[in-house]
Each structure stands twice: as structure tokens, then as C-alpha cells.
Amino acid sequence: MSKSNKSQKKIVIPCSGIGKAFGSVSREATYLLTEELNPREYRTMCLPLLVVDDEEAIKMMHSSEIFTIDGCPKQCATVSVRKSGGAIKKAILVAKVLAANKDHKPGTVLDIGEGGRLLAQDIVNKITAEEGD
């Protein structure tokens, strides 16, 4: 697999699903990476901007490497990016990451708990390990 183009910004877009704990985990993982662990290389973008065809957001998406994190198999973040013409570097499904780390089960949408925070870290590891960051 080729390494990233270091000059390109990396954008992480979670689904932020509001009905399930996995949606909150997708959000937690995004902020863990973009706010705490590596804000210099990674940032996030409002997913709803793609839903309303915001020109600035779409332009930024086209000039960046995109990582999506989806809470459920409907994969709204991934579908939205694709419908807006974005190329996804990696699409992560929270349930699949949990399957490989079964002890890291999240709590609720309101409080993902320690398990949810560990799961968020697993997701971040999955992104950064493959990127070599």
C-alpha cells in the first residue's frame, strides 16, 4: 500500500449517528485523533455540509485524503462522501472494529463509557497504523 502524500490534509468524517452508541464512538474517535493525538495532520469536517452540497466543503474534500467512520452498516458517512464525488482512503465500520476487540464494548449514546473510549482508540490506531503516522 502506498504511503500518504504528506502535503495533503487528511480529513476524518464520522457519521455521528445520534440514535446509537456506535455513532457517538465514531465521533469520539474523530476528536481523539483530530483534537488530541494529531491535529497537525488530521482535521474533521461537518458531514451535513455534504448533504446540502456546500461548495467550499466539497472543494476541500476533493483536495484531501478522506477517512470515514460509520457506526452502522448503512454507512451514511461513506455514502455521503461518495455521493459528493469524494475518494475515500479508508472507510471504517465501528462494528467491525469491535468484532476484533470484543472487550471494548461501548455503553450508551449518551455515555460511551470506558469500553467506548477504548474502542475509539482502536479506531484511531487502525487509521494511523496504516498511514504510518
Binding site: 449517528g17 445520534i18 455513532g23 448533504v51 448503512k74 451514511c76 455514502v79 455521503s80
Partner: peptide
């Protein structure tokens, strides 16, 4: 917006409200 919505859904009016995932509109649900 998210926290206020969750508070209304889970604490203030749990039996009178439902939530709808915004991205699902585009995903075509």
C-alpha cells in the same frame, strides 16, 4: 445542537419524541 437534542430525547420528552439521523436522508433511507 447534538447535546440539546439528546437531552430533549432522553431526559425531557423521552416518550414524545424520536430522532432521525440526518445523514440517512442523503443515504436514501
Amino acid at each position: 445542537s447534538r447535546e440539546a437534542t439528546l437531552k430533549a430525547l432522553h431526559e425531557l420528552r423521552p416518550n414524545e419524541t424520536v430522532t432521525i439521523c440526518l445523514p440517512l436522508f442523503l443515504a436514501g433511507d
